[in-house]
């Protein structure tokens, strides 16, 4: 899903004609067996280290539908504020014990804006859970660059409107194995041959709580 941030970047690109053309970077992610990998996040970080701070407050949302976090993976730029609407008819709780952002939103009722928005101010992986539904899980991938995209079911992600220049392209996935090669650099954005960067990563089985059929209960599922 295209995030709100992407639109912002696109806008930036249009507003800065001095930088000339912006380019789209396409990535395809497969696992070791050639299967397309969904929910992988591709990031492009300028090697120059110059990152323009967004002019507006960035926001994003993670909904809760049928006792599931939607989306499962949400890449955001540092400083983004996440809102947690509740589309279910029951209350939910959201917590994170992750170093990048520890927080807890106590049980809150269904509807929009009933939970305090949370601003993610440190890069890193934040795992979200719900303390009354063991199987509910979501990943917030907080990155420092505004250039990122998430692979869809077709394993493809497109980072739009990247200004030309030298970049470090990285891949991340909630279940990525450490052995995987995750970085490709330098990638010359603007150079025709560099505009498609593919990754092959190793994905491990997730240790998670499986939701039992009928949506009640669960068990640890290797």
């Amino acid at each position: 899903m295209t995030t709100f941030a992407t639109y912002v970047i696109t806008l930036l690109c249009l507003l800065l004609p001095t930088m000339g053309y912006c380019y789209d970077l396409v990535s395809e992610v497969k696992d070791g067996e050639g299967a397309l990998v969904e929910n992988a996040v591709i990031t492009a970080t300028p090697l120059s280290g110059e990152i323009k701070k967004p002019e507006k407050n960035l926001t994003a949302e993670i909904d809760q539908i049928d006792k599931t976090f939607v989306d499962f993976v949400t890449p955001i730029m540092v400083g983004t504020t996440l809102v947690f609407p509740n589309s279910d008819k029951i209350r939910h709780q959201v917590y994170s014990f992750s170093e990048a952002k520890k927080f807890e939103i106590p049980l809150y009722p269904p509807g929009q804006g009933r939970a305090t928005p949370v601003t993610f101010d440190k890069p890193g992986v934040v795992v979200l859970g719900c303390n009354i539904h063991d199987w509910m899980k979501a990943y917030v991938y907080v990155v420092e660059t505004p250039f990122f995209a998430k692979t869809g079911k077709n394993g493809k992600a497109t980072i739009k409107d990247i200004p030309p220049g030298q970049y470090k392209i990285e891949v991340w996935h909630p279940y990525i194995k450490k052995s995987s090669a995750t970085v490709k650099q330098p990638v010359n954005i603007g150079k025709e041959s560099d505009m498609k960067v593919d990754f092959v990563i190793d994905v491990k089985k997730a240790l998670t709580v499986r939701r039992a059929p009928g949506s009640i209960g669960g068990g640890v599922y290797p």
Partner: peptide, 30 residues
């Protein structure tokens, strides 16, 4: 980690124990 959890037998301080190793999920193992 590989199996998700593990049943085994181990020795500590001379005693033999049946052990169970399980992850604490939050919701990823912590």
């Amino acid at each position: 980690e590989e199996q998700g959890e593990l049943s085994s037998i181990t020795i500590r301080e001379g005693g033999y124990y049946q052990i169970e190793i399980i992850p604490i999920l939050a919701p990823d193992p912590i």
